[in-house]
Computed example of a mutant assay.
Amino acid sequence: MHMSWEDLQTIESLVRTGSVVGAARELGLRHSSISRRVDALERSLGEPLFLRGPRLRPTTLATAIAARATAMAKHAHEIEALIEGERRARELRIVITTNDVLAPLVFTALAGRALEETVQVRVSDVEAELEPGTTDLALRPGGQPSGALRGWRLGRLRVGIFRARSAQQGARTWILPSADLRKRSSMRWWKSVPDDAEGRVECNSLLSMRDACIAGLGRAALPSLLAAHDTRLQLEEEIDGGPPVWLLAPATRRADARRRRVAQLLVSSIRSARGVWVT
């Protein structure tokens, strides 16, 4: 048979208070509701739970059930406290996810801002799901967000071909992205590089491509965000194909004032970043 939590609470309260009146008062039920519930349980069990008299006397089975219900109630209260603590912590915490290329835009936007919230920035090439209670905002390259997401289009990344200032001008050796990196939709600008490009080094991240370029190992097609302000690098030419960048939030989640404020701060600051976007 199935015994509900309400059934367990009824037995526990009857055992502890010793009367239908006491249990009814504690549970906020009518006396008749308590009696009917106990009668139904006893019929289902095929044996009594209480011996009737001036005072209810629980059977061995009722006492054992009540003891376990008491332990369950303790755990239930602990779970409620855990959930409430997490809810309060969430009110003062904003979680933003982005990749290592775009992370500097987030850090610059947050720098010098007096925020009431604790902002957690999670940097990873893995695109974390925007789940309530897990991630609030995501800064990502890519196309129009799907129906499960809403977002603010911040601009299209400026991309160029760079070489080390110390490298010989006109050298045709390239630093190539790995096959996995090349497959990403945000790497469409790689089509601007000749099909027969000769490469000495292959890298699995844009940061390592930039570092290889600084070391003089070849030319590299890179977002200007990564390379334009590095005095060790020289821009040879700008190329097309930079991806749009979006600040995203769950479409189904109603943002509170704090999350809206952080989102608006990021949008305003990142859109105005110099030398980052195609104009």
Rank of each mutant, 00 (worst) to 15 (best):
W5P: 00
E6R: 11
V15I: 04
R16Y: 12
T17C: 10
S19K: 04
S19D: 09
V20D: 10
V21M: 05
V21L: 07
G22I: 06
A23L: 05
R25Y: 13
E26N: 11
L27Y: 08
R30K: 15
S32N: 15
S33Y: 05
S33W: 06
D39N: 13
A40C: 01
A40V: 11
E47V: 11
L49G: 05
G53D: 04
P54H: 12
T60S: 14
A66R: 02
A67R: 14
R68Q: 15
A69W: 07
A69I: 11
H77G: 02
E80F: 03
I83Q: 15
E84P: 02
E84L: 11
G85W: 00
R87G: 02
R88G: 01
R93P: 01
I96D: 01
T98A: 05
L102S: 10
L102I: 10
A103V: 07
L105I: 07
L105W: 02
A111F: 05
A111S: 13
G112V: 07
R113N: 09
A114L: 14
Q120M: 14
V121T: 01
R122W: 03
R122H: 09
S124N: 12
D125W: 06
D125M: 04
D125P: 09
A128F: 12
E129P: 00
T135N: 10
L137V: 03
L137R: 06
L137F: 06
L139R: 01
P145N: 08
G151F: 12
R153H: 07
G155V: 09
R156K: 14
V159Y: 05
I161P: 09
F162M: 01
R165F: 13
G170R: 12
A171K: 10
P177V: 08
S178A: 15
A179D: 15
L181K: 07
K183N: 04
S185M: 06
D195R: 14
D195F: 13
D196Q: 11
E198P: 04
E202W: 11
L206S: 00
D211C: 00
D211F: 02
A212Y: 01
C213S: 04
A215T: 00
A215P: 02
G216L: 07
G216Q: 05
A220K: 04
L222R: 08
P223G: 02
L225G: 03
H229S: 15
I239F: 02
I239C: 07
P244S: 06
V245D: 08
A249P: 01
P250S: 05
T252M: 08
T252K: 14
R253W: 11
D256Q: 13
D256Y: 10
A263F: 02
A263E: 07
A263M: 14
Q264D: 12
S269D: 14
V278F: 08
T279Y: 13
